[in-house]
Design a protein around this nucleic acid. Structure first.
Length: 901
DNA sequence: GAGGTCACG
DNA sequence: ACGTACGTGACCTCT
């Protein structure tokens, strides 16, 4: 809040000091946030949380004075009085302690003073400064996660305590402490004296918790007074207080913040005059706080290239030439010199993105061509150049550019390097894959983030033409620079083949598939929707009848109230925010009340209606009657594709009601067929290959039913003795193996005890010893190298594999086991797609590849090619990559997607 | 924008 | 003891 005081007609900002307990806030942030880390492997989550808090405080509080205090020294004066102080506290995890140096480096960039003194804790420093500030009549805000700080509150001193994580704080003034505890700030130490504090190993009076302590204080006022009146109490309480009187006195003393730390308390020494822009930007870059870099917009208005810090490379000024219909003649002679281009288009969905303009970078200038000029008749030579496969250019996201241009009737080819794809291969877990971010990450001159130039969401605006042109040209320039840099890095990690022979060609294949789209029978889909509407209506009435009133079934909150409060059904599971009502819970509740079946049915129908009928209908292009999904090649950490607008990789199949949705996906030409081919057990075959397990390899070489074979081995029975239950268990074990098995996960999945699950796993490893060896080896390898790879050398870094936190480390270990399997399967089908595309072209077939769903490919096929495609597709898929076990692809066709089963 | 739920491999 | 299976995207509610 910004407080102004009228002072002789001039508004003068009131002085305000913020004091932060550095250790407390860093540790709250550390435990509240996932364990982020930067490319150098340094963990940064506590620093990140700290940073967001600083930014918020500066923005909202407008402090004039600022200091962060830290604990210093392992032994404080408190230990002299009480040697057990903070005993039993688990020591600071290394992932947190390594962040303190970063934090102490960050604060100067914020322009914030910091202070620590051997033998004292942060709260003593803060206590001392609040005392002197208050004596001078200054206003203070103390920020901490430690309730002890409340003793410092006064009419001048407010204490803000973090609540659930660090995103929110509760502010306390004397009135609020009175309201919440019925105590004065000074009595907070009495409270501690009585109840103790297990986290600091302060004993208090055993058996006295917050409730009792408050009751005693409300009656007697202080620890001393409580002890004096011990005789007035009865029974156990009397004994407890008498037996632990010394403990209570000492606890109170320990909890009292020392406010006479020998230090400089000069007010002016704490003055705060704002952040050090370039230093802060440099720190954010080092820490890889990309979202903050973008939000802060360090580029400023003076110069577009001002974002660099001292050590970042400077770009020489770029000559920008604005192209119009009148001067397009100037551009044409320069085309042979163009090295990189950038197509700027607005919108997340590449198929509907609106082209803003394009920049072309030659040796000595950047040319900016607005969209209106791109499509003008006079720009035909430019469009011919864009479509010229022998005119080589590099891009950022060639796939997206190709789609956006195609919908404006412009062809893009000749892309020989795509910076975005390269950056993805170098780190497929990169979550904000932006050109601006990659420029900073890989040490080429900065470029402003798009958000800083355009704004985001509803605030999206085109800046004036000169600014826009300069920005897009600068992007083209950075693409050229990153091309050289990333090519070299790909070479260093031996990914050139993966890049040039698989990912880059695939991006073109994907664009072609998506532009073709798949035809949707809209009338049939609407018909399905009408039928669903009737059923949904009926199911809703039934649910309301059981409940006795109407409510929003879609609201988990309202549904929870109905089930667990109104109907008193037994609570099975809680979520962060309340009762869990997911399908697993509802299944368990079904025997208790008839309403539950209705809800399960309603959920199923509602999902189909909203996502697969209404959602899909919205995505059908009126012009073509088709849906054009947008495959994303740089999202999944394992190398898989993902699909959006609409997602065609999660169309229902498991339940018959949903599976009917597939009937509306039809060929785009009359008389043609849909043909689908899927890999059989590709992940387990991959596992057989990379683990080299003899038993597993033999099973696939003999083309056995793998789940039955697993059941035979795990249960030690003959094939004829494997019943459906045994096969089901074996199947679950196989899934578990692929996911990086744990006994707990398997026990959940099979509803068996952990012990039984553990025995299954043990049995499995006894007969598939090569698999066990692989699982052990891959985790060790991940720990040693910091990453795992697929068969085609796709790489995924796993910094958390060495975490001291059990959960984080276990997660990383399961990922180490799973990623080579899932990722190699992704490599294989991607290879098949590139090869399939070539074969279709080479053999002049009219059949078209339409979709990929992780382990299957879907085509539309004219009648006269059905026979050849039934043979060709499995042949290409099975031959995509040679493994130690055969790959098997099964093919089916029909007149719609549903019939390909 | 986050959280819950559920669709797929 | 810790508390999860691996990888995604869309829709809905609620803050």
């Amino acid at each position: 809040m910004n407080v102004y005081v009228q002072n002789r007609g001039v508004s003068v900002e009131k002085e305000k000091l913020i004091l932060i307990d550095g250790n407390s806030i860093a540790s709250r942030a550390f435990y509240a946030l996932p364990l982020l880390s930067n490319a150098a492997g340094l963990h940064t989550n506590a620093v990140y949380g700290f940073t967001t808090m600083l930014l918020r405080l500066i923005e909202e509080e407008k402090p004039t004075h600022f200091l962060v205090a830290f604990d210093a020294g392992k032994v404080t004066f408190r230990h002299k009085d009480y040697s057990e102080y903070k005993g039993g506290r688990s020591k600071t995890p290394p992932e947190l302690s390594e962040q303190f140096p970063l934090l102490k480096e960050l604060l100067p960039a914020f322009g914030i003073r910091q202070f620590e003194l051997e033998g004292y804790e942060a709260d003593d420093i803060i206590g001392t400064l609040t005392r002197t500030a208050q004596e001078e009549g200054k206003e203070v805000l103390v920020v901490s996660g430690d309730k002890d700080m409340l003793q410092l509150v006064s009419d001048k001193v407010t204490v803000a305590l973090t609540r659930k994580g660090i995103s929110e704080v509760d502010r306390y003034d004397p009135a609020e402490i009175q309201e919440k505890y019925g105590l004065t700030p000074a009595q907070i130490i009495d409270l501690k004296g009585l109840m103790g504090d297990s986290s600091d190993n302060i004993p208090g009076i055993p058996g006295v918790g917050e409730k009792t302590a408050l009751k005693l204080l409300h009656e007697y006022g202080s620890v001393e007074s409580v002890l004096e009146h011990a005789d007035d109490m009865k029974g156990k309480m009397k004994e407890k207080i008498r037996d632990h009187a010394d403990s209570a006195r000492m606890s109170k003393e320990i909890a009292t913040i020392f406010r006479e730390v020998p230090m400089d308390t000069e007010w002016n020494a704490l003055a705060y005059s704002g952040v050090q822009g370039p230093e802060l930007a440099a720190m954010f870059r080092k820490l890889e706080f990309k979202s903050l870099l973008e939000k802060m917009d360090f580029s400023g208005a003076d110069s577009g290239d001002a974002a660099e810090d001292a050590d970042a490379p400077q770009a020489e000024p770029l000559v920008v030439r604005l192209i119009s219909e009148d001067n397009i003649g100037d551009l044409l002679p320069a085309l042979p010199d163009v090295r990189s281009i950038h197509v700027e288009a607005a919108g997340d969905n590449a198929h509907t993105a609106v082209i803003i303009g394009a920049a072309l970078r030659t040796g000595d200038a950047g040319y900016y061509v607005p969209a209106s000029v791109l499509t003008a008749p006079k720009a035909q030579p430019l469009r011919d150049w864009l479509a010229d496969g022998s005119a080589e250019k590099s891009t950022w996201d060639r796939h997206r550019a190709e789609l956006a241009l195609a919908w404006s009737g412009i062809t893009l080819s000749g892309v020989t390097f795509d910076v975005m794809l390269a950056a993805y291969l170098l780190d497929p877990t990169e979550t904000s894959l932006t050109l601006s971010g990659m420029a900073d990450k890989y040490g080429v001159p900065s470029v402003a983030p798009d958000e800083a130039v355009f704004g985001k969401g509803a605030k999206f605006r085109l800046p004036e033409t000169e600014v826009l042109a300069a920005h897009v040209c600068r992007k083209a320039d950075r693409i050229e620079r990153l091309h050289a840099e990333l090519h070299e890095r790909l070479q260093e990690v031996e990914m050139l083949q993966l890049y040039y022979e698989l990912e880059l060609p695939l991006s073109g294949v994907l664009a072609d598939m998506e532009l073709r789209g798949i035809k949707v029978d809209k009338a049939a889909l609407k018909q399905l929707g009408d039928e669903l509407a009737v059923q949904i209506d009926r199911t809703m009435s039934e649910i309301y009848r059981h409940a006795g009133f109407e409510f929003n079934i879609n609201s988990p909150k309202q549904l929870g109230e109905v089930l667990f409060e109104k109907l008193q059904l037994p609570v099975q599971k809680k979520t962060k925010t309340g009762y869990s009502t997911d399908a697993e819970v509802l299944e368990k509740l079904a025997p208790y009340h008839d309403i539950v079946k209705g809800i399960l049915h309603y959920r199923q129908l509602a999902k189909l209606q909203s996502t697969y009928v209404e959602g899909l209908l919205k995505e059908v292009r009126p012009e073509t009657g088709k849906v054009h999904t947008y495959y994303r090649q740089t999202i999944a950490a394992t190398g898989r594709l993902s699909s959006q607008y609409p997602n065609l990789q999660n169309i229902p199949i498991r339940l018959e009601e949903g599976r009917k949705i597939r009937k509306v996906f039809v060929p785009s030409e009359p008389g043609w067929s849909i043909l689908a081919a899927d890999y059989s057990q590709i992940e387990l075959r991959v596992l057989a290959h990379i683990s080299g397990d003899a038993n597993l390899k033999e099973a696939f070489t003999n083309n056995m039913d793998i789940h039955t074979k697993t059941a035979m081995d795990v249960f030690g029975v003959a094939e004829s003795e494997v019943d459906s239950n045994m096969r089901r268990s074996a199947k679950a074990v196989n899934f578990g193996i692929v996911y990086g098995i744990s006994d707990y996960g398997l026990s959940q999945n099979l509803s068996i005890t952990r012990k039984e699950a553990s025995q299954f796993i043990e049995q499995y490893f006894a007969v598939f010893q090569g698999v066990r060896q692989y699982m052990d080896d891959i985790v060790t390898e991940a720990r040693e190298k910091g990453y795992v790879t697929t068969l085609l050398n796709r790489r995924r870094y796993l910094p958390e594999i060495t975490a001291s936190n059990f959960n984080l480390r276990s997660f990383a270990e399961r990922t180490a086991m799973n990623t080579p399997i899932q990722g190699t399967a992704a490599d294989i089908i991607k290879l098949a797609m590139v090869q399939m595309d070539e074969r279709l072209k080479r053999e002049g077939l009219k059949s078209r590849m339409l979709l990929q769903v992780h382990d299957e490919l879907i085509f539309e096929v004219p009648p006269d090619e059905l026979e050849v495609m039934r043979r060709l597709v499995p042949e290409v898929m099975e031959g995509a990559l040679k493994l130690d076990v055969p790959l098997l692809a099964e093919v089916n066709d029909g007149f719609n997607w549903y019939e390909t089963k």
